[in-house]
């Protein structure tokens, strides 16, 4: 779930985390679908970004990311549970790139 700067918000996006005011009040619950009106209100507030559903933008390519994963696990893959753990992390990383 990426954090989107408030000037990039578009109607139809869904909040993946509640929007909380400085005083700790929940202003919009998670799952709220953004409308023009909400976006205007949010832009009036002092927040730097909003969490919305969807794949985050990744800093490195998927191939790089998976190659590094292989390197980190190289000497322990055969140890108990480590193959399973690697598979979970690999699936997780792949999902970040938008493949479900």
């Amino acid at each position: 779930m990426p954090k989107i700067p408030i000037d990039k918000l578009e109607p139809g996006m869904k909040l993946s985390k509640p929007l909380v005011s400085r005083g700790g009040m929940v202003l919009l619950g998670d799952g709220t679908e953004l409308t023009e009106k909400w976006i205007d209100r949010i832009q009036d507030m002092e927040v730097d970004g909003i969490y919305v559903d969807g794949p985050s933008e990744q800093k490195e390519s998927k191939e790089e990311s998976l190659a590094k994963l292989d390197a980190r696990f190289l000497s322990v893959e055969k140890e108990p549970y480590m193959g399973r753990l690697k598979r979970i992390v690999r699936d997780y990383i792949e999902a970040l790139y938008g493949e479900h």
Binding site: S65, K68, L69, A71, R72, F73, L74, S75, V76, E79, P80, Y81, M82, L85, K86, V89, Y92
Partner: peptide, 25 residues
């Protein structure tokens, strides 16, 4: 500690994922 390393977050002194203790896991 192992999961953070497995995900490649941060640096704790070496670039490897250590094996988990099976009983603890």
């Amino acid at each position: 500690d192992i999961l953070v390393r497995a995900r490649g977050i941060g640096f704790a002194g070496d670039p490897f994922v250590p094996a988990v203790n099976p009983v603890s896991f």
